[in-house]
Nucleic acid binder design. Sequence first.
DNA 1: AACCGTTGCGTTACCCGTAACGTGGATTTA
DNA 2: TAAATCCACGTTACGGGTAACGCAACGGTT
Lengths: 340, 340
Amino acid sequence: MSKEKPNNSKKISLAEVAKAAGVSKMTASRVLRNQGGFSDSTRDRVMAEVERLGYLPNRMATAFAAGESSPFVGVSIPDLRNEAFSQILEGIDHKLGTFGHQTVLGLTRNLPEEEEKWIEKILSWQPAGMILTGRVHSPKAISMLKHAAIPVVEMWDLNSSPMDMCVGLNHFDCGYHVGRFLIEKGYRRLGYVGTDHGVANAAQSRLEGFQKAVADGGGDVRHHLCLNDIPGFYPGYYGTEQLLNAQRGIEAIFFQNDNMAVGGYEFCESHALQIPQDIGIVGWGDLPVLSVFRKKMTTVKVRHVRLGQLAAEKLLSTLHGSAVQPVSDIGYLTVPGATT
Amino acid sequence: MSKEKPNNSKKISLAEVAKAAGVSKMTASRVLRNQGGFSDSTRDRVMAEVERLGYLPNRMATAFAAGESSPFVGVSIPDLRNEAFSQILEGIDHKLGTFGHQTVLGLTRNLPEEEEKWIEKILSWQPAGMILTGRVHSPKAISMLKHAAIPVVEMWDLNSSPMDMCVGLNHFDCGYHVGRFLIEKGYRRLGYVGTDHGVANAAQSRLEGFQKAVADGGGDVRHHLCLNDIPGFYPGYYGTEQLLNAQRGIEAIFFQNDNMAVGGYEFCESHALQIPQDIGIVGWGDLPVLSVFRKKMTTVKVRHVRLGQLAAEKLLSTLHGSAVQPVSDIGYLTVPGATT
DNA sequence: AACCGTTGCGTTACCCGTAACGTGGATTTA
DNA sequence: TAAATCCACGTTACGGGTAACGCAACGGTT
């Protein structure tokens, strides 16, 4: 494809098809859109040329002329190695695809400035809408989206006053809920292990909620944040080591997600700490790893695929002119396991 | 954004900016592209209006006028819940994004007819290139891609005579290699557990290679394929149950991937089968789950992210006119563990 | 036979941005 | 002082497809 092939390699335009069929562009256009106003014999001649020349309509020209937007929907996601986001994206793309729209992916690594550049590029291609992760966006990004006048869904982190629409869960409340859960179980000296990318994100909100609940319950939180690491097994393992070395007597640890929690679990067990007798472990997200983990982990369940679907549904409804509830709380469910 | 806002919600065109600044479209265009041929005061007036009106260039119009293609690259992936593909996509998108291109995702579920429809849609938007999973595509899809005259990379499954370019590994050889490995370990009565979606795919090739190697080595393969299931923990668990119920005396099982292998492992262990003494287990893909699994699993390592990057690199090089090796074998590495 | 509607097509204009070319005034050169 | 040059900007045309409109030929009505 990249080089000239024996067959015609240049793009075929409607005019060429029309000329080959001996009709005007307009007639060929009518045939292709089956819009009526042509005889059977004309249709056959045009279609034969379409087939022979391998004509493919240029939707860019159509959309441009009509001042339409493209069927593309920009979807910005921090990172696909985080299974939560893979699942969300799966939900979004499946729903969008069913309704003839296309996902244009942007892995913006939770960096507002990267997101801003990406948004500018996407907007210049007249997308039908945008789905963004999180509630933090650069002022210029917000201004551009406002001017673009397209539906925007902010997902993941619940935002009671979104730019336009929002689906997610309240991570602060969720963290608070976990803190409250542990306090009620009698834990007081608590730890948190996560990662830090220097940006305000959902995990940060969970930590803040967690700290608040523990403080309210008369407890105390020590945390360790691994810098610039993806929240996986090894950061969980070493983060736990750092935390426990720095601070003795921690009774339970809340992890940024289940993958980190599993790493932390392994560290504890390999250092003769009994779970949950010596130390409690709480993960987050109900990630796939838990289905194969040997102990039932205390975690927080979030319907990631559904979240993605709902984000896409809000967008599609708006595009089709239906009234839409601007904010939806997807909720979460704390699932007590055998690690607390 | 979805409704009329107090500020101007209609799209601003260059002509409007020009008019507001008291110059012609052409002058405004020159200013925006900083192409020279205007005075400082004119530039300031134009830029002030750009700012005030929130003008964003319409790249669709530019590309259309110039007969250019879009910066979009169609990427068709079967399924994102399969971590291998998440990782590949991560590699592709990161590389494409670095060079100003955008990933347009298509989750085509390994179905050539879905892929065909998706390809047609994408092609009508003049993409810069295409990256497809696998070597099986519908005849119409192949014909359309040929006519489109854009670079196409088939990835995942190595294809010595690709449409255009290819990056992947030889799954048949890989399956053969695993079969040979088990034969040399002394195993003869072998099993395979995977999923079946009624289409020829890479996993199918691995099974065939595996069967060939085992037959060549004087052994015997029984397989069980779970219908229309994603290759995860539970299909692995129940697939193993089905296989072992149907056939006694199986000495080792090769699984479609590590997630299924972990499920199979759990089934065996919960039914008093010692691993590897009573039964051997081999996974595939070196998936994230293995980093947290309690036993070192025998598996096959594949550099998924690198595979995705390489696919994107081939495409980008072709677009920039560099000579490119049309086919690259990313290879694989069998990693013996404690389960064989 | 004059009138009317319908059918089957062609012509024109437009969408937005840019390449190519044209132009008028100021400045420099011979 | 006339001619050449240059600068800053305007005008025209184009690309692929479609809306709007025009029009000739034909069949049916009165």
